[in-house]
């Protein structure tokens, strides 16, 4: 078995254990917070008998362990239960809202990496010179305020005062894209509708940038710090002594070793965007999972809360597994030492 495959299996196993822990935790918390879900679902005018009947139907009158048993049995069949908020299966709700969130996070993450990492490389290569100071100032700005503040500021400037970008939504009403994957960028391309594709990107621009701004700062600062550290290593001095041009030293000899420590943290930043997306989605009226999540928490919709949290945890773990694999691929020490362990 190849060492990378073994690493993959190990990570999937630990992720599974983490998921079980998360499910128990959120299952408990959802039941501990005050308020009767059945009463909230049926409204203040429903009769006590109707509420009691619903409580019975939801197994809320059973012991906690029994409730968890029902939950696990359903989950094994891929069933997360009914949502009291939407009156649909929770899985159907998640399938409807998750793609919007993933699309946003994907573009924000790509923006973060494509802008943040090269900025960090430039700053490291021109360390302590004006360009470095400029980049550091810019990245300080990014990390100095949370994403939702940038979302508000960007929205005010580029959608309100200068109406360049749309204020809300994923796509203009004038476009109709037949749903296939739920990712509007992909669906519009499948439909061959390039005008719709452009419209989707236009809607994505502001929220994705707002969500990525802190990450751009973080990843640039991290890349710079690790590359400056690498520049002190003897193998860089050797590369200099062999006359490689500065650009090649930066891109080929200093970059890759520096990415080994950076990648894990950048991966965590990427995963934490799933959580940060909550507020950005609220501000841009983005029809994603976070709006759904907030709504179901306020309604104390137990099944939907547990389902939403589980799916976000699963996404988080998947991102981490992918990052761990990438690290193993670029770090020969990990790749090769797995063999002996």
């Amino acid at each position: 078995m190849s060492p990378v495959v073994r690493l993959l299996i190990k990570r999937i196993a630990t992720s599974f254990i983490v998921l079980v822990g998360v499910s128990l935790l959120i299952f408990t918390i959802a039941r501990v917070i005050p308020g009767d879900p059945a009463r909230i679902a049926l409204g203040p005018n429903a009769s006590a008998e109707a509420v009691e009947a619903l409580r019975d139907k939801l197994h809320l009158n059973d012991a906690f362990v029994v409730q968890y048993g029902y939950f696990v049995a359903d989950l094994a069949r891929g069933d997360l239960g009914q949502s009291l908020y939407s009156n649909r299966p929770v899985t159907a709700d998640i399938a409807a809202y998750l793609p919007a969130t993933l699309e946003l996070v994907f573009f924000a993450g790509t923006t973060m990496i494509l802008i943040g990492v090269p900025l960090g490389m430039l700053a490291a290569r021109y360390r302590d010179r004006p360009l470095d100071h400029g980049i550091r100032l810019f990245t300080m700005l990014g990390v100095s305020a949370p994403d939702f503040v940038w979302a508000v500021i960007l929205m005010l400037i580029f959608a309100y005062f200068l109406p360049i970008f749309p204020i809300a939504g994923r796509i203009s009403d004038s476009f109709a894209v037949p749903p296939v994957t739920g990712f509007l960028t992909i669906d519009s391309l499948i439909a061959g509708d390039f005008a719709a594709f452009g419209n989707v990107l236009w809607h994505l621009a502001l929220p994705a940038f707002a969500l990525s701004f802190a990450g751009i700062g973080q990843s640039a600062r991290l890349t710079r710090a690790n590359m400056v550290e690498t520049y002190r290593k003897p193998f860089i001095e050797m590369a200099l002594a062999f006359g490689f041009p500065q650009g090649r030293i930066a891109r080929r000899f200093a970059f890759k070793p520096s990415m080994i420590p950076s990648l894990t943290v950048i991966g965590l930043d990427l995963a934490s965007m799933l959580g940060n997306a909550f507020l950005v989605e609220q501000i841009f009226a983005w029809p994603g999972l976070s709006r759904y999540g907030v709504a179901v928490i306020l309604r104390k919709d137990l099944n939907a809360i547990v389902g939403t949290v589980l799916i976000i945890s699963a996404m988080f773990l998947i991102v981490n597994i992918v990052v761990d694999l990438l690290v193993a691929l670029i770090n020969p020490r990990i790749r090769l030492s797995q063999r002996s362990s």
Partner: peptide, 23 residues
Amino acid sequence: REALRGDRISMIFQDPTSSLNPV
């Protein structure tokens, strides 16, 4: 000067293992 290095003039350092790029 860069063109001379590694071609006409080269250098060997103190610690061989850390002079070689680890990745």
